[in-house]
């Protein structure tokens, strides 16, 4: 179920003195099973962009085609689109409203018009996906849960629609480190186990780098960079120029290359940075260090000279 975006432009309040273009002429295709990271600072248009993918916003110009259907056409069943593309908003816990967790998660499936047994089955499934215990939380008021748990319930509410594509807008915003790591691990698992396409909006490079298969970088409503994390993070200067920066690992290697060390420019995770540094260290001829490294590190990456 690919999502094709063709020449998407979105202008808020067109024709009024407050008119502003949030997205300008954006085209791309998202294939099944991708994990897309959408980067950009506040006001870059990333939230506006993802709200087009399930028809919450209508483009001023251009088309969005989901599963072969142009969802920007009149008369298209938006309910159908929303079953296919689930969107978890920023701070989604603020949308909870039902008396119990189970009822809240059931809201989406009920709107689709599923049978009672089907709804029940989906609620159990969705809560399981977000690693909450059905027996423990189903009958509890969502407002009695902790912040992190509320967020999981809200995500379950979207998962219960069984979307093929899941969009998450800043899913870790405002969480403490433990909560953040748990949510990220959960998203990674959702992507891996359910062959779900995931689109995650984030401004945290260290969060998104290890997860995404492709990054989209937005700036002032335009798609300015696109590629694998490796391809994007090596463009250090450009990322800095639009106020984004790169993961610390990539930043370190960049700084060392500036100092003249022959280090590769396409690494960013800490283990691969470690390997690159250790192999450089070993090549300096310190025999004892090289031995230790060979013993500790199973497959050290070849350090390639700076291009």
């Amino acid at each position: 179920m690919p999502i094709e975006v063709e020449h998407l432009t979105h202008t808020y309040l067109p024709g009024s003195p407050f008119s502003s273009t949030a997205i300008h002429d954006l085209s791309l295709t998202i294939e099944d099973g991708e994990f897309i990271g959408v980067l950009g600072h506040t006001g870059s248009g990333k939230t506006t962009f993802v709200q087009h993918l399930n028809g919450l916003l209508k483009p001023t110009e251009g088309r969005v085609i989901v599963d072969g259907v142009d969802i920007t056409r009149k008369g298209v069943s938006l309910l159908d689109v929303r079953r296919k593309v689930g969107l978890v908003f920023q701070y989604p816990e603020y949308q909870l409203f039902e008396e119990t967790v189970a009822k809240d998660v059931a809201f989406g499936p009920k709107n689709i018009g599923l049978s009672k047994t089907e709804i029940d089955e989906r609620v159990r499934w969705a809560l399981e996906q977000v690693e909450l215990d059905f027996g423990e939380v189903a009958g509890v008021s969502p407002f009695e849960l902790s912040g992190g748990q509320m967020r999981r319930v809200a995500i379950a509410g979207v998962l219960a629609m069984k979307p093929k594509t899941l969009i998450l807008d800043e899913p870790t915003a405002g969480l403490d480190p433990r909560g953040r790591r748990a949510i990220l691990a959960m998203i990674r698992r959702l992507h891996a186990e359910n062959s779900m396409t995931v689109i995650m909006v984030s401004h945290n490079m260290d969060d998104i780098g290890p997860l995404a298969t492709r990054l989209l970088v937005m700036n002032r409503g335009e798609l300015v960079m696109e590629g694998t994390p490796r391809e994007v993070f090596r463009r250090h200067d450009e990322m800095l120029a639009i106020g984004l920066g790169v993961p610390r690992g990539a930043e370190l290697l960049y700084r060392l290359r500036q100092e003249g060390y022959p280090l590769p420019d396409d690494l960013y995770t800490l283990p691969e940075v470690r390997d690159a540094l250790l192999s450089l260290y070993a090549s300096k001829g310190d025999a004892s260090a090289a031995r230790t490294q060979a013993a500790d590190s199973a497959s050290p990456k070849e350090a390639t000279p700076d291009a």
């Binding site: 230790t292 490294q293 500790d296």
Partner: peptide, 9 residues
């Protein structure tokens, strides 16, 4: 990373 490098020698 420093800790990882220390373990690496």
């Amino acid at each position: 990373l420093a800790e990882m490098l220390r373990q690496g020698g």
